[in-house]
Write a protein that binds this DNA or RNA. Structure first.
Length: 351
DNA sequence: TATGCGTGGGT
DNA sequence: TACCCAAGCAT
């Protein structure tokens, strides 16, 4: 049972959304939605997976390329793994791409290409967690589910002036968010809260002066909005070192490797190399006169900084070492590489 | 509950 | 520069 205040807040938010909703390739705007147009669940799912920990600006072009190449979940389910990994290259968190394919194949095979509509059933799909399941149920199927992402956490922490630190405060924030979720237009409501968090209730300098929730916001009243939400402090990132080896044949073909599915950059194409550590052990893919090229690659992952040295040599004709991939000049695309590997390629090509 | 997992943009 | 942050999930 909700009291009148939450209903009022929800209506205020929807009114604001009706006027200020952002346009996105995967979104059905409030006007079309009011006319009965519903989004394609495949596109909602794909966009939500891409948007996990990733900005709208970074996702837009990837989403267009994916949906152009694979317009339906059945089409995606039939794609080859390396084609999907290549198309995902540069977007990061590559386990998402592997789970994307798994999920597409489950939906194609077990659901005849129709996404399930219920939260708990969505939650069983690979790569679909509590946020994404709620987002799909609310946005694609207008079910009254509550999304809790970074935006919603921030908006709720401020609206209710909650100082308990994340992630411990998640249950409380979810409870607050649920109390605002309306029985009607839950999809628009979910997108409204997230739009508010992305454009008004921003992390650094929230635009409280133009916020539709200015009046009821407890943090704004207390002047604590920029301190919220509180987060437990992060650990410092160590710096690791490594070597990579780029070998090219006379005809231009390159020696690469497909990385194992588990772990960092799992399933992606990359250059053969050493381990990444304080004292990496040099580990060329075959014995040769390897030359170190000037400069280094610097890259930062989620939990460590990396400095890579680049070594190069000629790849002998007719040489096909086990556990490596030889890519012809015309089939190799730098854009198929994860960014750290593309940086290595760029440095090598530029010298 | 804590940790591993990418990348690019903003300040 | 060195953080912080972004529509989280799997283990």
């Amino acid at each position: 049972m909700r009291d009148c205040t939450e209903i009022d807040l929800s209506k205020t938010l929807l009114d604001w959304y009706d006027r200020h909703a952002r346009e996105m390739p995967w979104r059905i705007g409030p006007v079309d939605r009011a006319a009965g147009v519903m989004p394609d669940p495949y596109r909602v799912w794909l966009s939500e997976v891409m948007l996990q920990q990733t900005t709208v600006a970074a996702v837009r072009d990837y989403f267009i390329r994916f949906t152009t190449r694979w317009p339906t979940v059945k089409a995606l389910a039939q794609a080859q793994d390396d084609q999907v990994m290549g198309e995902w290259a540069g977007l990061g968190y590559y386990a998402r791409a592997r789970n994307l394919l798994k999920c597409a194949r489950v939906v194609a095979a077990e659901y005849d290409g129709q996404f399930p509509e219920r939260y708990d059933e969505l939650l069983t799909l690979p790569g679909v967690g509590p946020y994404t399941a709620a987002a799909i149920a609310a946005i694609a199927f207008d079910q009254s589910e509550t999304v809790l992402d970074g935006n919603v956490e921030r908006v709720m922490a401020r609206l209710y002036d909650i100082h308990d630190p994340l992630p411990g405060s998640k249950p409380l924030l979810k409870e607050k968010a649920a109390s605002l979720t309306p029985p009607l237009r839950p999809g628009d409501h979910a997108q409204a809260v997230m739009d508010l968090g992305a454009t008004i209730c921003t992390p650094k300098s929230p635009a409280c002066g133009i916020c539709p929730l200015y009046a009821p916001c407890l943090a704004r009243a207390a002047g604590t909005q920029t301190e919220l939400p509180q987060k437990t402090p992060k650990k410092p990132k160590p710096t690791r070192l490594g070597h990579i080896y780029i070998a090219q044949r006379r005809d231009g073909a390159l020696l690469l490797e497909r990385r194992p599915d588990k772990g960092l950059l799992g399933g992606m194409l990359g250059w053969p190399g050493s381990d990444w550590s304080d004292a990496p052990v040099e580990n060329p893919p075959f014995p040769a006169r390897w030359q170190e090229i000037p400069g280094e690659v610097r890259h930062t992952f989620t939990h460590f900084h990396l400095i890579l040295r680049i070594w190069t040599t000629k790849l002998p004709d007719g040489f096909t070492p086990d556990d490596f991939v030889i890519m012809d000049k015309h089939q190799f695309k730098p854009s198929d590489l994860p960014t750290v590997m593309r940086k290595g390629f760029d440095l090598w090509r530029g010298q």
